[in-house]
C-alpha cells in the first residue's frame, strides 16, 4: 500500500499513555511515533552528572531489533534535546524519552529485510516532533520548543529538486538528505547531512527547512507555494506544535 497519509497534515495527540509522566503520539508523512517521557527521575550511577540532568533517548523500531543506525539517531536527538531542555535545573537526574515507532511508510517495490531494522533520516522529523510534544506534555521545563524537518535533494529529469519530507522512494534516489531543526526563536538547532551537495544547495535547503519549521508570518500570502506539502497544508510546524498544545490545554481545562 502506498502510505495513504503521505500528503495529509500532521496529526498529534498528547497524554496518550496513562502511566508515564508525559506522552504524545504524532503521525505525519506515513510515520507514526509514540513517545513517553519520564522525568526528572533518579539517574543510574553511570549516567549521573552532578551538574545537569542526563537526557536518555531510546528509539525502538516497530519490527526487528535496533542497531547502529538507531543508536546514531538516538545520539543526535539526545544532543539536540539536551540543548533545549533546562538540564541545569535537575542535577543528578534522568529525563528518559522513549520513542516507539509504530508505522513507517512502506516501499511496495522492495521486500524489506526486517530483522535488522534500518531507519534513516526521513523519520527524524517525526521522532523529533514527538519527543518535543511528549516533553511538553510531561511539563519538563524547556528553553524553547523546536521542530525538525527532513529535506532531500532529488535529481529529476536532469534538474535537482528539493523535496520536503521525502518518501522512501525519494531517499533511495536522493543525492543528499538533510535534517534540520529550529527552535521557536528561529535558531538553527540541528543540521545533519548525508550525501554530497554544494554550499549553494545547502543555503537553499536551509531556507526551505526554516520556512517549514518556523515560518514567521502565517502562510496566507500564497506567494511561497513551493513544492512542499507543509506550506500548502496550512501553518508551519511551530504553529502546529502550538495549536496542539493549545487544544490539549483547552480540553483539560474545559471545566473552568
Amino acid at each position: 500500500m502506498a502510505s495513504p497519509c503521505a500528503t495529509s497534515a500532521p496529526e498529534a495527540a498528547l497524554g496518550v499513555l496513562p502511566r508515564s509522566d508525559g506522552s504524545a503520539k504524532y503521525s505525519h508523512a506515513g510515520y507514526t511515533v509514540t513517545a513517553s517521557v519520564n522525568g526528572p527521575i533518579e539517574a543510574q550511577r553511570k549516567d549521573e552528572n552532578p551538574y545537569e540532568a542526563f537526557v536518555d533517548v531510546i528509539v525502538r523500531p516497530a519490527a526487528g531489533v535496533g542497531g547502529t543506525r538507531e543508536r546514531h539517531l538516538e545520539s543526535i536527538l539526545q544532543s539536540s534535546l539536551s540543548h533545549i531542555i533546562l538540564i541545569k535545573n535537575f542535577p543528578r537526574c534522568l529525563i528518559q524519552i522513549v520513542l516507539q515507532i509504530e508505522d513507517t511508510p512502506e516501499n511496495d517495490y522492495v521486500n524489506t529485510k526486517l530483522v535488522q531494522a534500518s531507519l534513516n533520516f526521513a523519520i527524524m522529523p517525526a521522532l523529533f516532533q514527538t519527543a518535543v510534544l511528549a516533553l511538553l506534555s510531561a511539563g519538563v521545563p524547556m528553553r524553547a520548543t523546536a521542530a525538525a524537518t527532513a529535506v532531500a535533494v532529488v535529481p529529476q529529469d536532469g534538474v535537482k529538486k528539493t523535496v520536503v519530507d521525502p518518501s522512501p522512494r525519494d531517499i533511495e534516489i536522493a543525492q543528499s538528505v538533510h535534517v534540520l531543526a529550529f527552535t521557536s526563536h528561529g535558531e538553527l538547532l540541528l543540521a545533519e547531512s548525508e550525501g554530497d551537495f554544494t554550499v549553494k544547495e545547502w543555503d537553499g535547503i536551509y531556507e526551505t527547512a526554516k520556512k517549514t519549521c518556523c515560518h514567521s508570518t502565517p502562510a496566507k500570502d500564497g506567494m511561497e507555494m513551493v513544492l512542499d506539502e507543509e506550506a500548502s497544508a496550512g501553518p508551519d510546524m511551530r504553529h502546529f506544535l502550538r495549536s496542539t498544545m493549545e487544544s490539549k490545554v483547552a480540553a483539560d481545562l474545559y471545566w473552568k
Binding site: M1, R19, A63, G64, T112
Partner: peptide, 22 residues
C-alpha cells in the same frame, strides 16, 4: 494500515504487536 499490525487496548493497558517476515 499495514498488514500485521494489531493495537490492543484493555482498559488502560495497551499493547501493539507487529508481525513481519523475511
Amino acid at each position: 494500515d499495514q498488514y500485521g499490525v494489531a493495537d490492543v487496548t484493555l482498559g488502560k493497558t495497551r499493547v501493539l504487536a507487529k508481525a513481519s517476515a523475511e
